[in-house]
Simulated assay, not measured.
Amino acid sequence: MKDWTLDELAVSFIENGFWPQEALIVVREKLYGKPSLVVVEGNRRLAALKLLKDATNGSIKDRKWLEIADGLKLSATLFKRIPYIEVDARSDVDAFLGFRHVTGIKEWKPAEKAEYIAKLVEDGSTYREVMRKIGSKTPTVRQNYISYRLLLQMEEVDELSTEEVEERFSVLFLSLRTEGVQKYLQIDMQAEPGQAQHPVPRSHLKQLANFALWLFGTSTKAPIVRDSRQVDQFGQVLLSKKAIEYLERTPRPSFEAAYQLAGGDEPEIVRMIEAAADNIEAALSRAHRYAKSKKLRVAAKRLGEDALQLLTIIPGLKAEVLDEDEG
């Protein structure tokens, strides 16, 4: 039970009760020597309900569950009347369970989920109220709402395909987690619904157009962010003044070039040099055995030339190394 994400289900029970259409599926079997109803589908729902009951009774010490149960006025029947469907045998539901868990019930796309959340918010619900209704987390609800409102703002950008944005909505959603995107667009990710109607201020609509172009492209230009795995790096790019200037002035900018200008490849360069140093140290312990080897001489000459060039690139490093050698 502790390995499952059950708190979101519990919040849904608090707001909506146990929906009959999500009834448990049970079989009557012998358990510990006596006939019992055994749940074959819906164990997460049952586990969430049990933990919620323990939390309301004070018999659980987990802070998260105690906060969920704090001050609640629950339906008197929530823990006493649990909807279930009894089947004759486990084999009767094999096909249903296979479809539900292997093939999977079709879920809404990310943009559709965000639109639904936006509708609830704009019907008057707070982020917290929506969180309780849909069994999510408040920061996720807020981010979905702001992301959807940003999508509506982006519809005003010339040549941008909103269908493309909707298809890659998860990329937009993820990008808003990054400090670089928030600063470049001047988006307040803590804004309440009234302040989040237009996430990007009018003074930054040009930046919004640039952002949309870089992230989603147009019918004639490909986006520079081609993969959701680049989203965090894109945020780092937008923290660099040099990288932003490059992106804004270049008709067809390269993500790799912008990332380098932002210093994004520094950790990789350091890793490569550290790996080379590790290999050299390992080779030094045995290289003396092959001091007359022509192949070793050629390889060592190449290494020396490259190392000398590296020493001259970094200001003052060559003199520092030579002083250490003399010492």
Rank of each mutant, 00 (worst) to 15 (best):
S91Y: 00
K133M: 10
E167M: 01
G71A: 07
I82Y: 07
I60A: 10
F99S: 12
L72S: 00
M154Q: 05
V121R: 04
V121F: 01
Q143A: 10
F99M: 14
E167K: 07
G104T: 02
V165P: 00
A47P: 07
E155V: 00
L97S: 09
I85K: 13
T126P: 00
K109P: 00
L78R: 09
V121I: 15
K61N: 11
Y145C: 02
L74H: 04
G98R: 08
L150I: 02
L160H: 03
E155H: 06
S136E: 12
I60Q: 06
D88Y: 13
E107M: 02
L74M: 12
G71Q: 11
K133S: 01
D158S: 14
T103N: 01
A55I: 11
A55L: 09
V157C: 03
D88L: 14
D158Q: 13
V93E: 12
F96H: 11
R149S: 03
K61T: 13
N57M: 14
K119V: 07
T138S: 08
D70L: 11
S75H: 10
L160D: 03
E156M: 14
I85E: 12
Y127P: 02
S75M: 06
E115D: 05
V165D: 00
Y148M: 05
R45S: 12
L160Q: 06
E107A: 12
A76F: 12
L49C: 08
A47H: 14
S59K: 15
V93R: 09
L72D: 04
M131Y: 06
K133P: 00
A111P: 00
T77A: 14
D158T: 08
I117P: 00
E122F: 00
D92G: 06
D54I: 06
E86C: 06
G135I: 07
G71N: 10
S59Y: 14
D88H: 10
L97W: 04
L51R: 15
S147Y: 02
P83F: 08
I117L: 09
Q143F: 04
G124K: 01
L151I: 02
T103W: 01
S75P: 04
V102K: 06
S59I: 15
E159M: 07
E167Q: 06
I117A: 02
Y148A: 01
T138I: 05
L46S: 04
K109L: 07
G98F: 12
F99A: 04
R45E: 11
A114C: 05
L151Q: 06
L66Q: 14
D123G: 06
R63Q: 15
T126V: 02
T162F: 10
